[in-house]
């Protein structure tokens, strides 16, 4: 398996009411590559945003499924969410 480049680790910032509240406490939420691990995420954040990361929590958000009659279909794919707690610094991307 080819190595995951740091630019491929982070997919998008998650901007919601909840993530917004977490950002105020220095926790930033991203969608990350399904195959990225915590070490790769830490490295990517530190390099791209020039901040110091204290810890990374990850989780796989389950796909949302719907059903039409007997058939199941995927409403939204499963994705990996990372909550990055910074030791110092700020990520301007979130505008807070």
């Amino acid at each position: 398996m080819p190595e995951l480049h740091i630019y491929d680790v982070l997919r998008r910032p998650v901007v919601t009411e909840k993530s917004n509240r977490q950002a105020e406490a220095g926790q930033y939420v991203f969608e990350v590559a399904r195959s990225a691990n915590k070490i790769q995420i830490r490295e990517a954040i530190e390099v791209l945003f020039e901040v110091k990361v204290a810890k990374v929590n990850t989780m796989v958000m389950p796909a949302k499924r719907g059903r039409r009659g007997r058939n199941w279909y995927v409403r939204s794919r499963e994705w990996k969410k990372a909550i990055v707690t910074l030791a110092e610094g700020k990520i301007e991307l979130f505008n807070v």
Partner: peptide
């Protein structure tokens, strides 16, 4: 998207 009505903070709304 991501916010309930009336809950989006100023900066995000401006964006």
């Amino acid at each position: 998207p991501g916010f309930r009505k009336g809950k989006a903070p100023y900066r995000i709304l401006v964006n």
